[in-house]
Design a protein around this nucleic acid. Structure first.
Lengths: 203, 203, 203, 203
DNA sequence: AATGAATGAGTCTTCATTCAT
DNA sequence: CATGAATGAAGACTCATTCAT
């Protein structure tokens, strides 16, 4: 059974099993035993690869943060993304991308939001992500809005995105991605409209 | 010896202690023992008054839901609240009111959002609240917007409110109520602006 | 079942059960489950009363140290104990007293000697006891010997006592108390003999 | 590829690593993983060479017993060791020899004293050593003392040696070899003094 | 010969709950 | 009404051992 280089394979397996377990029974009941069973391995291996449950949770959170960052980055890397509007749309699209795992990830996110308030390491991760979303948005609003307006717009859009996400996660029928995206687009449009009337017409 | 009417007193004590415990160590570590100690009573009494930990949590959630509903209702009951805009502002104000317990309540809310996904009873409570916020908002947008626009505006405003709340809860420096409220007001204004140009001028 | 003031009763029960378990299977295998079963209580209660296994072990060690100190003190408190020789004999007698539990205590002592090297709290207890034995002995030798001789004699007698104890603990047939005591008496006699020839004849 | 004669090399490596681990963290925490890491090999190899942890511990104990026996034997093999006194001094010197590994060995010894009470195989080894010390000593006292006196003297000297060892092992500053040896010499002298006055003048 | 992977039994601990007083 | 005692299941974690490579 034991082959070489299992570590990355197992780590991925276990993180995936963690996401599924959280989706299934919630973070509070996502015990090591359950996660291990779902991954088809023994419980002891988790401590072996992650040093303990905390390590597993942190790695899981890192994973979904990285996935999100990656989704956004990919959208923004496309050639046709140049204007502030396009960049902001790319950010929105990245935040509402994430195909089939969406439901799982949203639940996990919700769970982490809650626990991160009381765990320094998770809090740090979570905060970096928060600031990144805000900074990205703010940066592009800045290209066509005066600083205070850009900051306010960025706060609004970030809240809108997170709020849509949150309500989507809580809604029994799940999130309606197109509708959510449209609401975010609309919000961007409103903000840019103010800009247009005052500064540049081709935001 | 048996004091009369201890029940409501004890229940309030224990719910308050629960909120404080969640604020302090998080829901996961808010054990019955800790809550009881904070309330200055023995652990056994919780099962006596609430039938168990689940009952206590449900009662606690009911409490904060009721407080929220109450805050909104009070704002809307004022004589000068008549127009859609005034009503929507009242709803916003209600959601961002809640003086000194704010931080505690926000943390608790966050915790309940997470666990309610996996507990039927909490989920029901949470959903009622969600729908109430949406319905209230939608109802007033309907007075000056066509149904689809009103629904979309309501979804947007609800998301905005929850998003501001969420980010406020997560932010280390807490929420900036005035700024949050202003963002929500602005959002309302944008939606009503569309209405004005098409339907009624006195939204 | 639950009566008031069980704490001291349970603590004594559990310490006794710990001694018996160590005597039975050794410290390494004296698990909480085994100790609890022997005491006829559930395993959880140990953490409840002692805060954990470490607390139980420390309390157990304190107990046997206190018992030893007490045995010595009682001997020395007798009216007819006045001369250095009598005091030293009382110390020896105290160290070799301890009736029926002797075998159990000796094994526990041996176990604690070993683990105390790597646990700060136990090491402290153990060291206090070591120094107490030496100081007591030294003090009485000082009454009839010059300081360097008294110190050397004290080191010798302390070593003799501990060595007899150790070998008694290890011997399959247990310790022969009378023989051990006689050897210690003899050692005292030799030391005092040197004193006699040089200083006081009525040591 | 398979190197020839690895067995004795590996065994010595692992035994040495075991001693160091016990010195470092105590027998209870001297896990196979730790020992293996210290030896710079994989954990699996221990079972391969020693059949399991028990085998390793037994081999380790055999090693230190053999080292002790060897130290004594070397002292006694010297040409100028002929009289009982010289032999007894050689035994004492052997027991307090053991240069640089002293502290490590003393700790290990202490640990084994404790566990050997509950492990048949270790107990046997330990007992052989005990009896050897006693027999050696007794044999030489017999050359100048009547049997009962010789036996008693042997018990006393053995206890003295072990006691000095024990207290040396427990003392934070370690053992003072010269002082310990002097105390043992003195004890021998006292015993032989009795002999001189009664039996042979050239003990 | 040697390793890293993996297991599963066993340990300590926590915690909601029950119960006699 | 209220307490403190007590339980027992469940949790995370450790560790000696086995096995395929």
């Amino acid at each position: 059974m034991p082959k070489l280089g299992m570590q990355p394979i197992r780590r991925r397996q276990l993180i995936q099993a963690t996401l599924e377990a959280i989706d299934d029974v919630g973070l509070a009941d996502a015990t090591i035993a359950r996660i291990a069973k779902r991954a088809g391995v023994s419980a002891g291996i988790i401590s072996h690869y992650f040093g303990g449950k905390d390590g597993l949770l942190e790695s899981t959170m890192r994973q979904i943060l990285w996935d999100l960052g990656n989704a956004v980055a990919q959208r923004r890397a496309r050639d046709d993304v140049t204007s502030p509007r396009e960049h902001l749309h790319a950010i929105i699209d990245g935040n509402f991308d994430r195909s089939q795992v969406d439901k799982i990830v949203m639940k996990t996110w919700l769970a982490f939001w809650s626990v991160s308030m009381h765990r320094a390491n998770l809090q740090r991760l979570q905060r970096v992500n928060d600031r990144r979303l805000y900074s990205n948005i703010c940066h592009h609003f800045r290209r066509c809005l005066p600083r205070p307006d850009a900051q306010q717009a960025a706060r609004g859009l970030a809240a809108m995105i997170d709020g849509l996400w949150l309500r989507g996660a809580l809604a029994p029928q799940g999130i309606d991605v197109d509708r959510a995206r449209q609401l975010a687009y609309d919000y961007v449009e409103e903000q840019l409209a103010h800009a247009t009337s005052r500064t540049s017409p081709n935001a």
